[in-house]
Amino acid sequence: MQKHRIYTTSFASIYPHYVAKAERKGRTKAEVDRIIAWLTGYDHKGLERILNDKTDFETFFAKAPKLNPARALIKGVVCGVRVEEVEEPTMREIRYLDKLVDELARGKALDTILRTN
């Protein structure tokens, strides 16, 4: 089975789209970065390194410092796909991130997005 092309796409090429989506709705790059940190454990320096090195999505998630166990609480549909039903682990991680950025752009409170309340 051939891998989906998103796996070999650099995270740096998609990251600006996440930020732009959030900013179009009055949210900030800092909020996007906080979501990424919550989901993956990447701090500011780690995220900058990923972006500068043009790390692909598969490696971005495979080498994440600490995937948040609460990410399993992320439910819902993004791009017509129910995230909790995605079987392939890397694709599920990508969909989790897509869903969190989507929630941010839809105006949800950050505490709700990060499943802290």
Rank of each mutant, 00 (worst) to 15 (best):
V77C: 03
A62T: 11
T55H: 05
M91K: 09
M91C: 01
T90E: 02
E87H: 05
A64N: 05
V81K: 11
P65F: 10
R95Y: 15
V78T: 14
K75P: 00
C79I: 01
G80Q: 06
D56E: 09
A72T: 14
T90K: 10
E85G: 03
E93L: 06
A64D: 07
G76D: 07
V81C: 06
F61W: 09
E93G: 00
I74H: 01
E87T: 09
T90L: 14
V81N: 03
N68T: 08
A62F: 06
A64I: 08
T55P: 02
F61C: 07
K75D: 09
V78S: 05
I74P: 01
V78M: 01
T55S: 05
A62V: 06
G80I: 05
V77N: 13
R71N: 09
G76E: 05
A72Q: 12
E87F: 04
I94A: 10
V78D: 02
K63R: 13
R95D: 03
R82I: 10
R71K: 15
A70N: 12
A72M: 09
F57Q: 05
I74S: 01
K63I: 01
N68H: 15
P69N: 08
A70H: 07
T59V: 14
C79T: 01
L67A: 09
A62M: 10
L97D: 09
R82V: 13
A72F: 08
E84N: 14
K54R: 14
V77A: 03
P89K: 09
K63F: 04
K66R: 15
R71Q: 13
L97I: 10
A64P: 04
M91S: 12
I74C: 02
G76S: 08
A70V: 04
E85A: 11
R71E: 09
F57R: 00
A70G: 01
T59L: 11
P65D: 07
D56S: 04
P65Y: 09
D56Q: 02
R82Y: 11
K75L: 11
R71W: 07
V77R: 11
V83R: 04
R71H: 13
V77M: 09
M91W: 00
F61H: 04
